[in-house]
Design a protein around this nucleic acid. Structure first.
Lengths: 240, 240
DNA sequence: AAGTGGTCTAGACCACTAA
DNA sequence: TAGTGGTCTAGACCACTTT
């Protein structure tokens, strides 16, 4: 009866997963403790831990701290709308009472290889880098890094850290409107650096959204946005 | 000297990660064995295993089997182009010598809740379900499930398992062309079912792409496509 | 203070696979 | 058949957080 695989930790794993999917354990609920599960299933605590570690990295439960223990993870992702308007801007769809907080920093940096090729420039050339962090309720929702050729950014609002508009809108306002954008969306696990910067719980994959903007087939900018999967759903409206 | 965190497994973890990012270990290379690493770092084998398990779930190394041991994972994702043409079709960009193999199956099923709401229909109503698996070199690259209201699909090519065109194209060919599509892209870890159906190595997140097609604001279809992050990069061309 | 998870050890036995 | 990883045990000690 039952148990396709022989591993005992898989029984524990399947048991907890079932309790979650069937609604017996709901988001925010406390997961039974490791000692209790060990006794319940007649296995050692380390075997239980194998199961719980897997569930953590699958994004179903949280890591535990102190007396609280582990809880079932709650997901409440927000739509990130990628528009097809003239600026190719984007926006987060938040409840009325939640306001995003934007932090912008700007610097002149040598181009990394991956960005340089998209801008059709040479690796190591100096370029303007604009980093924008979008926080909602103090939590980072997006980490967005834009690169502009220096001749386009020089002495413009692109270097203004007070201007928190979308890069596409700023380009339009300085007379360098894009006529086409290309989007690439890769899905991957975060590096430890990504996880730290985005304050990611274990088991959270991210979307790496790369937008290249062109004017007359010349690249004007590249924007790489990291969007955690537990906070964001990308939305495209392809009308017309 | 060094080591921000006190955990010993993190030293091993950081060490292997460094060897990979610095190119000392390249994709396909064999990772040093667990016993060797234990001796090298002066820790127990289980401590090494903690580090290697993390690296596996971060998608950096494979699980090990038999004498081969673990290897550094190789990524070679292919572009999945989501067009804005009149059919809102999509295509995989493969090398000339790689041909996708398409398998289609069709059935009449009751609508699950999530799909029903997108189709503006009632959960449990019967609808046509069309499942398309795209294999490349025998490996599943996409698992695509389309739902159509029964009155639209009845006696049409939508129920033909030999017709492997994009659902949007088929809709056009039967006189029910879409005039608008909405795309939603969620990023998540696979369930065990997803992992089995898509033959996913541990540590592979997936994109869940949901396309809803409309005609005069009436939903004609919903297509949910699962695309593994190690095989696919979504590509949108948002030309004006 | 009590109970939770996090880390770590030193073994043991098994399943798999390349040589 | 030798060596790899996969599973499992039975402890131990620590850090943390709620009560």
């Amino acid at each position: 009866m039952s148990s396709r695989s022989s591993a005992r930790w898989e029984e524990v794993h399947a048991d907890i997963r079932r309790r979650i999917t069937e609604g017996q354990l709901r988001p925010g609920d406390q997961v039974p403790g490791e000692f209790a599960l060990a006794e319940e299933h007649g296995v050692s605590r380390n075997t239980v831990r194998t199961a719980l570690t897997r569930l953590t990295q699958e994004g179903l439960i949280t890591e535990g701290r102190g007396r609280l223990g582990r809880t079932v993870r709650a997901y409440n992702a927000v739509e990130w709308r990628l528009h097809r308007d003239q600026h190719a801007a984007s926006s987060l769809e938040l409840d009325d009472d939640r306001r995003p907080e934007l932090r912008v920093s700007v610097s002149i940096e040598p181009l990394p290889a991956g960005i340089a090729s998209r801008l059709q420039l040479t690796e190591g050339m100096m370029a303007a880098r604009r980093v924008q962090v979008t926080l909602v309720d103090g939590l980072p929702y997006q980490l967005s890094t834009s690169w502009f050729p220096e001749d386009i950014a020089r002495d413009t609002a692109l270097l203004d850290t007070e201007d928190t508009r979308d890069p596409g809108e700023i380009l339009t306002s300085i007379g360098a409107a894009q006529d086409r954008v290309e989007d690439r969306i890769a899905v991957r696990m975060p590096s430890p650096t990504d996880a730290r910067e985005l304050d990611l719980p274990a088991g959270t994959p991210i979307a790496e959204h790369t937008r290249t903007g062109f004017r007359a087939e010349k690249p004007l900018r590249v924007t790489v946005t990291l969007a955690p999967g537990d906070r964001t759903v990308l939305a495209y409206d392809m009308s017309g």
